[in-house]
Every structure is written in structure tokens, then in C-alpha cells.
Simulated assay, not measured.
Amino acid sequence: MKIKMRVSMASEYSVKNIGDVLDVSDEIGAAWVAAGIAEKTDLEPNVPYEPQPNNGENPDDNDDKTNILEGTVEEVVQSLEGLSKTELEDLLEQEKSDKDRKGVKEEIEQQLKENEESPNNEEGKE
């Protein structure tokens, strides 16, 4: 849906000024029109619209890391790659106190072991 901004809006991810024309999803467009912050238009967009990650939530929030544990064992295992030692330790403690799944705990422990053995491990170096 093409919309023209009636007010300025700013977020951590972008700024939209009065008069900006955007092409947004029908859902976002309808919500913004209903709220009175934009109007529907046939004009061509003059600024790009990039949706915010994770429906507006910062992907670096710790809450997103704990959501990893809400998946199946297979989904959890696939999501562990690239997490820091601290994040893995936090997830391990949360798993132990919640679902306590053997497969998840073993995989997190394995990732922690691999992180410690990694030649790229900078922890403890000065």
C-alpha cells in the first residue's frame, strides 16, 4: 500500500518525515491510516521503507536469545551457532531450570567446550 506521511516519525531504525511517500505492507498502511499518521496515496514512493527486524524488536535484546529455548531440540541446536560464551552459559542455566532437555543441555555444553578449545578464543589473553 502506498501511503503519504502526515506526521514525522522516528525510531531506532529509521526516520519518516511529513510528506514522505512509502510503499508499505497493507497491514502497516491500514494501521497508520487508521491512526491518522498517514494517508493512502497513488503517488510513487520517494523514500525506501525497510521493516524493522523482528516486528520492531531489537534483534540484540536478551529476550530474543531466551526465545531460542522455546523451539524444538533441533531448532534450539540450529540457533546456537555464533552465540558468545556468556549467552551459551545463560541459556544452559535457563534450560536446566525450565524444560531440562538432555539433548539441548548436551549441545550447549558441547558448544561451550568448542568455544574454549577454539584457537580463535581471545578470552584470557592480554
Rank of each mutant, 00 (worst) to 15 (best):
E50D: 12
V24T: 10
I37C: 04
E114K: 11
T41H: 00
R6T: 09
S97V: 12
D26Y: 15
I18N: 00
P45A: 02
T72D: 03
A30V: 11
P48W: 07
D23P: 13
Y49L: 08
P48D: 14
T86G: 04
K40Q: 05
E116A: 14
K125F: 15
L69W: 08
D64A: 09
D42M: 01
W32M: 12
N54P: 00
D90N: 13
D61G: 10
Q52E: 15
D63M: 13
E39D: 07
L112S: 01
K85T: 11
I18C: 02
K85E: 13
G29S: 13
E39M: 00
N17F: 06
I3V: 02
I3T: 01
E117H: 04
S79C: 03
K65P: 03
K16S: 05
P45K: 02
M9I: 14
D64G: 11
P51F: 08
K65C: 07
D100F: 09
K105W: 07
V77W: 02
K125G: 06
T66N: 11
E74P: 04
V77G: 00
P51C: 10
E123H: 10
N54F: 06
E117A: 08
W32K: 03
T41S: 00
E93C: 07
S25C: 11
N46E: 03
A38Y: 00
R6H: 08
T86R: 15
S79A: 15
Q78A: 09
D98N: 13
P59V: 08
E39T: 01
E126P: 07
Q52M: 12
K105P: 04
E57D: 06
L92H: 10
E27P: 15
V7N: 08
A30G: 15
K4W: 01
E57W: 13
S14E: 12
G56E: 02
Q111I: 01
V7T: 14
E114A: 04
E57R: 11
S84A: 02
P51T: 08
E122A: 15
E95Q: 09
E122I: 15
E81Q: 11
P51N: 13
D20P: 05
Q110H: 06
A31G: 10
K4P: 00
T66V: 11
D100E: 09
Q78C: 04
V77F: 04
K99I: 09
M5T: 01
N55P: 00
E123A: 14
D20V: 08
S8M: 11
S11Q: 08
K102I: 08
A30K: 15
K113V: 05
K113S: 05
G103T: 11
S84W: 05
N121P: 15
A34D: 13
K102P: 06
T41C: 00
D42N: 00
E114G: 03
N115Q: 13
L83W: 01
E114N: 05
N58Q: 09
N54V: 04
V104Y: 07
E50H: 11
K2N: 05
L88F: 07
E109Y: 01
E87H: 09
V104F: 07
T86D: 09
D26W: 14
S118V: 04
N17P: 03
D23Q: 12
A34W: 08
Q52W: 12
